[in-house]
Amino acid sequence: MTTLRLDGVGKTFGRHRALIDISTTFSTGQVAVVLGPNGAGKSTLLGILSTLMQPTTGAVLWGAERMGRDSNMRTAVGYVGHEPGLYGDLTARENLSLFGSLYGIPDVGARVGAMLTRVGLGDVRPDAAARTFSRGMMQRLSLARALMHEPPILLFDEPAAALDPQGADWLTGEIRQERAAGRLVLLVTHDLDAAASVADQLLVLRRGRLTFDETRAGGFAPEAVRSLYQEKTRAGG
């Protein structure tokens, strides 16, 4: 088991403090869910964990290595956001081969085929531009892109936003599957029920501070998540 440890991480933008002194530990084979109102610092946290932002204070450690701009550390992370992060004018296959080859994956063609099947896009028209995809197909392709290089860390930033219920269910299943595959999954969401259905570890952010952080072996019941969220995002909570 490898851990991702945040040690006093803070981030300041000009006069705005997006994150203040965050210390916590995430483990592989577990799903950590980050909850919090808009502007609580969730996106900033993901920015730092994905190495695209540098913390103003503190450090992020993956195992014994410090995460930073170093491009080798970057390959440890896969990222699925609410925006697909793909080129709409390229086909599904072209998108995946592009990123596959940028990651230096050997035998990209075979890998692309396997990934498309894996996310249920195996029968998609090979010449269809990604922009013609439905929201659900786009999110599948986005997940395939994030998994191309088999990253041990998988970050989700409100991945179910604007997905239909089937799409959201599919996504929940995928998250469970990645956990079973031994990945460290971090999910940022506003959907408390979805959070309850997958969380091993629950974190609540309020105005840049961590107000709740607990790992429960049996997971969290939906009612527990609701009351925790109410309590921990209240002023002075």
Binding site: T12, G14, R15, R17, I20, R207, R209
Partner: peptide, 15 residues
């Protein structure tokens, strides 16, 4: 001044 404002916020918000 910006730093001071942040420090004030911290003091008021304290964990």
């Amino acid at each position: 001044l910006g730093e001071l404002e942040l420090a004030c916020e911290d003091a008021l918000e304290g964990p």
